[in-house]
Amino acid sequence: MTTATAPAVTDERVIRTNPFIAMLRRPEVGAAVAALAIFLYFSLSTQAFLTPAGVSTWLYSSSLFGIMAVAVAMLMIGGEFDLSAGAMTGTTALIVGVITTQWGVNIWLSLVISLAIALLVGAGNAFIVMKTGLPSFIVTLATFFILQGINLAVTKLITGTVAIQGMGAVPGFDQVKVIFGSSFPFLGMNVKVSVVWWIAFTALASWILLRTRAGNWIFAVGGQMTSARQVGVPVMKTKTGLFMTTAGAGWLVGMLQLFDVSTVQATTGIGQEFIYIICAVVGGCLLTGGYGSAIGAAIGALIYGMTLQGIVFAQWDNNWLKAFLGGMLLLAVLVNLYVRRQAGVRS
């Protein structure tokens, strides 16, 4: 058995594909090409885009969307959606803001409490989806509205306003700010620490998806849940982990925003849940699950962040962003459809 095949596995029945063509088939490459085009366009057409200040602005913007997009991409590969992901960034930040400024809870403890609540909501989403078999789209839509309502109502009830004030005066704020809200000089830019979190999270997610058992299970439960169950994949555990990861990422982004600007609005994150999904799809995720990549989703977020800021730099009407977003999504879905057909999935 050992001598039958040469170590370099080549077979005359496999057409030697051009490495360039083979590369184009990877889920994230289409998005990378688009990102490069957008980068070049705004670099050449606006003054501010390529300046150190400009770069750090769109990198920061991309990083916040990117962390969520990567988490949502993993969830989508696992065959589920989470529409409560955006509101979750607001909920977690509001919890920390309210209990530290109003009740004087220790700031470190408040971080743990808000993370625990986020994870609990994620687990709750998973539990309802898995036990009832209802589409996660509906279940998390409900969670989204519940969180949105609570964010506004409870914040108003306790603080009397719809925003958290006086975060900066909370003892220990500066220490936590180092972790979530600081920035550091890099190549003349003032890079926000959230960019580091984004890159680290994307790398970790890629590692998990491609090189661990859990990653194999994520692709399997999204691709063909009954098959995965039949061969002994812990479906419930995998999906619960995914929902909790998404909620946990919502907490991270909530903290990154809160400690950057020292305030949080009760409406934070509302309406962003679809942007995460769009970033993931632009990055090569299939809406039907079982296929996609974390790096692709990160690139999808980069495209969004660059466009968001590029449009501002170019002084266009901000509404063009939405039209652009729709166009990108349509294009990405068409490319995905093509890829799926090329993959030749039968039956």
């Binding site: 692709f219 009954t226 079982g290």
Partner: peptide, 19 residues
């Protein structure tokens, strides 16, 4: 239905659940 996941490579399917 063979309990395979169509989009996944043959080797990942072979070891799925017992990697």
């Amino acid at each position: 239905d063979l309990a395979v996941v169509g989009l996944m490579p043959v080797w990942r399917n072979f070891f799925l659940g017992s990697e």
